[in-house]
Design a protein around this nucleic acid. Sequence first.
DNA 1: TCACTTAGTTACCTTGAGGGAACCTATGAC
DNA 2: GTCATAGGTTCCCTCAAGGTAACTAAGTGA
Lengths: 136, 136
Amino acid sequence: MTNLPAHHSNDVDDCAFRSFLDRVADKWSLLLIVTLENAPKQRRRFSELKKSVPGISQRMLTTTLRNLERDGLLVRHFFPEIPPRVEYELTTLGKNLMCPIGELVQWIRQNWTTITNARNEFDKNNMAKSTGVKEC
Amino acid sequence: MTNLPAHHSNDVDDCAFRSFLDRVADKWSLLLIVTLENAPKQRRRFSELKKSVPGISQRMLTTTLRNLERDGLLVRHFFPEIPPRVEYELTTLGKNLMCPIGELVQWIRQNWTTITNARNEFDKNNMAKSTGVKEC
DNA sequence: TCACTTAGTTACCTTGAGGGAACCTATGAC
DNA sequence: GTCATAGGTTCCCTCAAGGTAACTAAGTGA
């Protein structure tokens, strides 16, 4: 998601909405938020997060955490020990965000079979024209 | 957003959630859904959509519409006239989706200044280390 | 002296998303 | 004959997201 063209005609809030989604609506951000929310005491160390979110690279873990911190959704507690220890924790804002996210998850859960059925139907009618979508 | 590694340890619904967001949580999909929802009679022609969502390329418009259709979020009404006429319309499912999306929009609207303040604060403290984020 | 620890940073490289422009279809108007 | 029209499709090319691997700090234990 890049910048808007200057002449766009949509709602002013589009900017906020899109800018926010740009940050949060990706694989790793959401997984990290959910993982932190489910964590005991809602805190997790860097290495714990790496284990809890398999497949994430160290680079993406740091950059995603940094971005979430930048948005005020989590705080980074740094303990200057050797070896260093860092704990990540959702802020009130971050926990707060889980409400609408939860609503969305609920909606998807309720409608997921409808959607997959629609996809199958569509794919059948369009005779396996590749859509670039993989099952997981 | 790509596939999950086979060994992931998270909730089963992660797949649905991520797969769905993968499809819907991008710039063009959301803008098209909102545009269709705001349209009179909730219908729009291809060319109208192109005007209503400035900046979208023809290619992205078609592929995004195709994907939304595949998910059963909208229907494509094709009139075999010359020149051809096509109208896109949100399905019940698509309109339905606007509820949780609306909640999220509400949340962002309410917390947007908090977030931008957090960003500014963070950027100030981190002395303009580039985060790759542009204002819009 | 060496290996090992955590939480990163940096450099390098690959892949795919997406932009731009040309092309396509059939018909009616000029 | 050729232009325009609506709704696409196709090709090419770029740029940036993100993966991998190597490097770092500073202390501890063998």
